[in-house]
């Protein structure tokens, strides 16, 4: 294990994640002819939440207070397993894609329990919807990743990135393109974006993620929000560096190469954020029971991707 790399990636995760959320919020406002909050407003929000007193529901048990830490820590840990500016990722050995998906599911499990615990109907509604949609999204996610994992003959994310990098033209392989598309849909769903969920809403009947957080306050809320933005960054990194590892520094790269790789990563991240902003602005949120159609479409895309690996292998 490479300790400096680990600490650097940890800092990058902690600091970059809120900024990505802020940038998306800001650009979205711009695109909708509003001024919007400054991109770094999210940092101030988090600091404010951390300082605030907490109100905990009288009905809640220890699970309620335990959940924010699980959400936050699992998101951080998965971030260390995904290659961000160089391969292999710091904790590559401890788990590949299956562990990443598993740990994110562990965070979601406790998030949903935290939603149910204060006995409010909103929380239960949010938990139920979150678990339902993620259950539908998971096979598509897995199948998309399997498609690239099969080509790389490994479930190790760094190996997959290396394998995609090694063969030029692989990026234009039909299997890869289809899996890429499927993964983008899943990314929108898993990060709670329009058309599946609306991060800006607090309207009872439409919210999913926010409904589970309604009873959280103070530092618990801060960890929940921060965890969610780290999870978003992790999924975006997974999407960018596993499916599109352009500019990613390889093993044993020098400081200059690492710097370039970081720049490439930031550029890709901003481009992806812009794509998310465009999708969020040009689409309306789907009704809850239409969202599975979208996710099934992602599953079908991923299946086609798999079939085309079969054909072109």
């Amino acid at each position: 294990m490479n300790l400096p790399a680990l600490v650097l990636q940890l800092l990058l995760l902690l600091l970059l994640a809120p900024l990505v959320s802020g940038v998306i919020k800001n650009w979205k406002a711009k695109l909708q002819n509003r001024r919007g909050p400054r991109p770094w407003q999210v940092y101030f929000d988090l600091a404010k939440f951390l300082r605030k007193d907490m109100v905990i529901s009288e009905h809640a048990s220890w699970v309620f207070s335990f959940a924010p830490y699980v959400v936050f820590l699992t998101a951080l840990l998965t971030g260390l397993m995904v290659p961000m500016v160089h391969t292999p990722a710091p904790l590559s050995l401890y788990g590949g894609v299956l562990a990443v998906v598993g740990l994110l599911a562990l965070g979601r499990f406790f998030l949903a329990l935290g939603g149910l615990d204060p006995a409010s109907a909103f929380g239960g509604m949010g938990s139920s919807r979150e678990m339902t949609l993620s259950a539908i999204a998971e096979p598509a996610l897995m199948l998309a990743i399997f498609t690239v994992a099969i080509t790389a003959k490994s479930t190790d994310l760094s190996q997959i990135a290396l394998s995609t990098q090694s063969a030029t033209g692989k990026l234009l392989n039909p299997a890869h393109v289809l899996a890429f598309a499927a993964m983008f849909v899943v990314l929108l769903a898993e990060t709670g974006r329009i058309p599946v969920d609306n991060p800006a809403t607090h309207l009872e009947l439409t919210m999913i993620h926010e409904a589970m957080l309604l009873e959280y306050s103070g530092r618990h809320l801060a960890f929940m929000e921060w965890g969610a933005s780290i999870k978003q960054l992790v999924l975006m990194t997974l999407f960018l560096n596993v499916f599109f590892p352009v500019g990613l520094a390889g093993p044993g790269a020098g400081a200059g190469a690492l710097g370039l790789s970081l720049l490439a990563f930031l550029a890709k991240l901003l481009a992806l954020s812009a794509a998310v902003v465009v999708v969020e602005t040009t689409n309306a949120k789907l009704r809850l029971f239409r969202a599975p159609d979208l996710l099934s479409a992602a599953f079908v895309l991923a299946t086609l991707a798999l079939l085309s690996t079969f054909l072109f292998h």
């Binding site: 007193d53 529901s57 006995a119």
Partner: peptide, 14 residues
């Protein structure tokens, strides 16, 4: 670092 002085209150759910 941030929350040393914050307090926790038990209250009914909204």
């Amino acid at each position: 670092l941030f929350a040393r002085r914050s307090r926790t209150r038990i209250a009914p759910t909204w």
